[in-house]
């Protein structure tokens, strides 16, 4: 599994605050961003309500992101359980699709790289408002409470931006 995917699977960035600071030595302005990382995973159950159309039937928090699963209930009454990798392969195979996209609009979206700050599950992705409320107040609230928050710094123009970076080599 690529590192990109594994990292995306559990990290969402959101700009909690922007603190523009000035370093006295370099006069560079920095942006401070708070990175919110889910420490819990989620099991999302999606149900095929019409051919190729899925709604989220339930979502439960699980101890770690690696425990995350998508349970797909097909209209022919079969049920499959996928890890995120397996779900992606299934969709890419073209055999049966749509369930992963539906899941991405729920809490599972955080496991797929959606921002924990900028993204909120869409009530329209759930089978009904009651399910949406239950998930939001239950698993959703717990995932937000248990998220790990760290701070990253990056210059507004990027490090090295003030140098004449294109005019000279830094090799020797």
């Amino acid at each position: 599994m690529s590192k990109t995917f594994s990292f995306l699977a559990f990290v969402g960035l959101f700009m909690c605050c922007i603190a523009c600071g000035t370093d006295s030595d370099s006069a560079i302005q920095y942006e401070t961003e708070v990175v919110s990382t889910p420490t819990q995973g989620v099991v999302t159950t999606v149900k095929e309500v019409r051919e190729g159309e899925f709604k989220i039937e339930d979502e439960e928090a699980v101890p770690t992101p690696d425990d995350s699963r998508i349970i797909a209930k097909w209209s022919d009454s079969t049920v499959d359980t996928f890890t995120l990798d397996e779900a992606r392969l299934e969709e890419e195979s073209g055999r049966r699709g749509g369930f992963m996209t539906a899941a991405s609009y729920g809490l599972m979206g955080y496991m797929m790289g959606r921002s924990m700050g900028g993204f909120r599950p869409s009530s329209g992705a759930y089978v009904d408002q009651k399910t949406y409320n239950k998930v939001s107040n239950g698993a959703g609230a717990r995932m937000q409470q248990t998220a790990k928050r760290t701070t990253i710094s990056k210059p507004k123009s990027g490090f090295g931006g003030k140098s004449s970076s294109s005019s000279r080599s830094y090799g020797g």
Binding site: V35, T150, K154, P155, G158, G160
Partner: peptide, 14 residues
Amino acid sequence: RLEHVIFSEDEGVF
């Protein structure tokens, strides 16, 4: 290029 790289003292290099 360096200017596109993000550094976090808690998480690493991104």
